[in-house]
Simulated assay, not measured.
Amino acid sequence: MSNTYVCVHVLQDVPPANLNRDDNGTPKQAVYGGVDRLRVSSQAWKRATRMHFRERMDRDAQGIRTRRLHGILTKALEDRGKDHEAAKALAKESLGTLKITPDRNNEAQSSYLLFAGRRQLEELADALAADGADAKSVDAAEILGSTHPLDVALFGRMVADMTQLNVDAAAQVAHAISTHAAPTQFDYFTAVDDQQEKDEAGAGMIGTVEFNSGTLYRYAVVGVEQLVENMGDREEAIAGIGQFIESFVQSMPTGKQNTFAAHTRPALVLVEVRDDQPVSLVSAFESPVRPRFEDGHSTGYMGASLERLARHHRSEAERWGDEPRLLVASYAASGNGDSALTEAFGESTSLPDLVTRVTESVSAGGRDG
């Protein structure tokens, strides 16, 4: 059986911001093409995508990543009629079969984080609360090990002590990097004390905040067959691909947003449905983009990046002689470079139409295959 991949490419400008910082408060960076680039980690954007799911999906259809499994399962058993001590003991014994033990300092917390479906936890509580049931008669690993919610199915789960609970991620998300050199900058700020006396000089507080700005290339890929296997339902998986595209494209990490309010939308969303292999287009930017000037006007980094991506995509398709099953894009008009975008990606469409065309293509491919 052939594998199908949904590749999502995004170009998005970010004004002064610090969306994802390291332990020193510095915006994360990477050296690529011999220059320092702005970087936003895959973990940051995967969490932002999951938070976007919360606003768009039923709570019961989502997963939860938490150390509070013992407390959650205890409360669920109490809701089903168990007294507190019996519920706590049953939760501890059941999770113990999965080698998930309570934290030494807080019995309501578990020894490590586990990513599980809310519906799976409710099913486990139902099974444990049934007449005559106990932790030994209920297969907790089976309940937590199949028919995963979208976020668990996409991003996977690794449990070192019990590999039966591992879930191979159906999605891979690249670290977003700027298409150009992007050195870190510093904002010197002062804060005035509102109760300061008239004859007092100086500020109540001074300091610096590091920030960066740039045009980012973002990339993610979903393996359709792996997602179907993880979720156990093809129709739900295909609908989940549409939700992933919407949430990945529209989400934004929350780092320092109260300081910078860097709420932007992508200038380009390009999606390919491929039957051969996942392909990132990041190599278009290995040579750092520089704005081009025509008639006294600059393309800016975004305009130059759009043109660069279009040329790279077209040349790579010719060089390798392959063609995706579907190529669909939504992009903003950029002026002089629009003809290159249309030639490479076709006419721009709305994001809802893009999602519909992708899910229809994936669905039709599954029936034909």
Rank of each mutant, 00 (worst) to 15 (best):
L354K: 04
S305D: 00
A171S: 13
V269K: 00
E323D: 09
H84S: 12
A170M: 10
S111L: 04
V271N: 00
L326T: 10
L150V: 11
G335N: 10
L216N: 01
D23W: 05
R265Y: 11
E85F: 05
E235S: 11
Y188G: 08
L351P: 06
R21M: 07
V328Q: 04
G202P: 00
R56I: 14
S178Q: 09
V271L: 05
K136L: 00
D338M: 07
Q164R: 15
T66R: 03
R157G: 06
I206W: 00
T74K: 15
V279E: 09
S41E: 02
D187F: 08
S283I: 00
Q172R: 14
D194N: 09
T359G: 07
V40K: 10
R319L: 03
N106V: 02
Q109P: 01
P102W: 04
V6D: 01
Y219V: 02
H263R: 10
G71K: 01
Y5Q: 00
F211V: 02
A171D: 08
T147Q: 15
H313Y: 15
L11H: 02
R54C: 02
V159S: 15
A329N: 03
P253I: 04
E123M: 15
M302I: 15
G156R: 11
M1Q: 09
P288G: 11
A125I: 06
E316V: 12
A17S: 15
E122C: 11
L154G: 01
P149G: 05
V152I: 14
L306H: 07
R47L: 07
Q250A: 08
T264N: 13
H180Y: 08
N336P: 07
E55R: 13
P102D: 05
L98D: 06
E307D: 07
A91H: 01
R234C: 00
P16L: 09
R274T: 09
G242C: 11
V269Q: 04
P266F: 08
G96K: 07
R68G: 10
E316N: 13
R319K: 07
L354W: 04
D161Q: 14
R308S: 07
A116H: 10
A30D: 12
D168T: 15
P102H: 05
P288N: 08
R234W: 07
A30P: 10
V6P: 01
R37E: 02
A284W: 01
D131K: 14
R47K: 05
A140T: 10
A48G: 08
V173I: 14
F115M: 03
R80V: 02
D194E: 11
K46M: 10
E225P: 01
T342Q: 12
T163H: 15
L95A: 03
R308A: 14
R290A: 12
A201D: 06
S361F: 01
A267V: 10
R157V: 05
G202I: 03
E210N: 15
G202Q: 01
K92W: 00
D134Y: 04
T26L: 14
V10G: 03
S363T: 10
Q257D: 08
A116Q: 10
G63W: 08
V222D: 04
R319F: 04
F211G: 02
R308Q: 15
K46V: 12
E55Q: 12
G81L: 00
P324A: 05
K92E: 06
E78V: 12
T101G: 02
A160K: 14
D161N: 14
H175E: 08
F115Q: 01
L309V: 02
Q62W: 07
